[in-house]
Simulated scan of single mutants.
Amino acid sequence: MKVWSVANQKGGVGKTTSVVALGGLFAEQKRRVLLMDLDPHGSLTSYFKHDPDTIENSAFNLFAYNGKVPTELPRQLIVPTGVEYLDLLPASTALATLERRMVGVEGMGLIISKTLNILWDDYDYVLIDNSPSLGVLMINALAACQKLIIPVQTEFLALKGLERMMHTLQMVIRSQSHELDYMIVPTMFDRRTQASTQTLRTLKKQYAEHIWRFAIPVDTKFRDASRMGIPPGNLDAATHGVRAYKRLLVDLLN
């Protein structure tokens, strides 16, 4: 099992779209994929037509056993997406209460790692969609993953969010005493606008060693796929946004 986490401490940068697009491409290759939603907003859960406000079985249940995860529990929480080879472990809005509930409880930063150990032989890839805030959920995701993908919208305000994310990443790396492979992925790129092209140029200059060499473009097909609850590649494999994610996947695997 390979575990990839998609995170940024700024919302609206394309995290959920990246998780679904990459997961869908893996599923096309007949790889068994689990999409895990650790964001209390539940965007990934909503994408596949589940309501994070009312769902009963979700990632929140994993944190209810004082640092332990019952062996039978993770598989009980997983739901189909309607796409072959692609499953979902949904989120509920109750995840937002974890910070105050977990005060003083040891081992809460390894819940997702323990969960994935139970599911290790069930999936080839796990893609985790994260909350945009640093807390027990993001710490869990970073502790569990072997690769971190950081989507960054190509607009000036996103640069500050990336600075915060890089600071968080360095703290986590120091605490774990090992390096974490990560890639910064420019998203929502519109070559017609000066703001987008200048921001991309700045990103490539400041983060030359870790930034993806291309960018994910603005693509209305992403919105259409979200409305239908399917990966973008299942809607239109030839659209320029899907082609960009295919190129990204190749580079992530190399």
Rank of each mutant, 00 (worst) to 15 (best):
T239Q: 06
V6A: 02
Q29D: 14
L35Q: 04
R191Q: 14
L127S: 02
G24S: 12
A21E: 05
H41G: 05
A59S: 15
E99S: 08
K68H: 15
L253H: 12
G82Y: 13
T154Y: 04
D190S: 07
L98Y: 02
R101P: 10
M188C: 12
I78K: 02
V152E: 01
G14I: 03
K160W: 05
L253I: 13
K2H: 10
D129K: 09
L62G: 11
Q170E: 15
P151N: 00
K68E: 15
P74R: 08
L252S: 10
H50Q: 08
H178G: 03
T16R: 09
K221E: 10
Q29L: 15
G135E: 11
R201H: 00
F63T: 00
D51Y: 01
A208T: 07
P217E: 01
V136F: 12
P151Y: 01
V242W: 03
H41C: 04
M228F: 08
E155S: 10
P217F: 01
P132M: 06
K15M: 07
G42S: 04
V19K: 12
F26T: 00
L200V: 05
L203D: 09
V126Q: 08
L162Y: 05
V242H: 03
V83P: 00
D122C: 04
L148C: 03
M171G: 08
D122G: 01
I149F: 09
F222D: 02
L25A: 14
M165P: 06
Y182W: 09
V172T: 03
M138P: 00
A7N: 08
Q206L: 15
R164L: 10
M165Y: 13
Y125I: 13
K147N: 02
V126D: 06
V136Y: 11
I111M: 12
Q170L: 15
N8H: 07
M171N: 09
N66G: 14
G135I: 10
A94I: 03
A91N: 00
Q176A: 09
V79Q: 06
R174N: 11
D181Y: 07
K205Q: 15
D236N: 15
G135Y: 06
S133E: 12
D121W: 04
V83A: 01
L252F: 11
T199G: 07
R223K: 09
R32W: 08
K246S: 08
R75M: 10
G107R: 09
V79I: 13
L119I: 11
M188T: 07
P70H: 10
L159W: 03
A144K: 00
S5G: 09
T239D: 07
F214Q: 13
K114A: 12
P80I: 04
P74L: 05
I111L: 13
Q153H: 07
R75I: 07
V33I: 09
L119F: 12
P40W: 00
K114T: 08
L137M: 03
K205G: 13
V33F: 06
I55R: 02
T239H: 04
Q153C: 06
L25H: 13
P90R: 06
F60A: 01
L127Y: 02
R174A: 14
E56W: 01
A91V: 00
P186N: 06
K15P: 05
Q198Y: 06
D121K: 09
I173K: 04
E99C: 05
V136C: 12
I150F: 00
N234G: 12
L44K: 06
P232H: 07
V83R: 00
R31E: 12
L25I: 15
Q9P: 11
L200T: 04
L73T: 13
M188G: 10
I149Y: 05
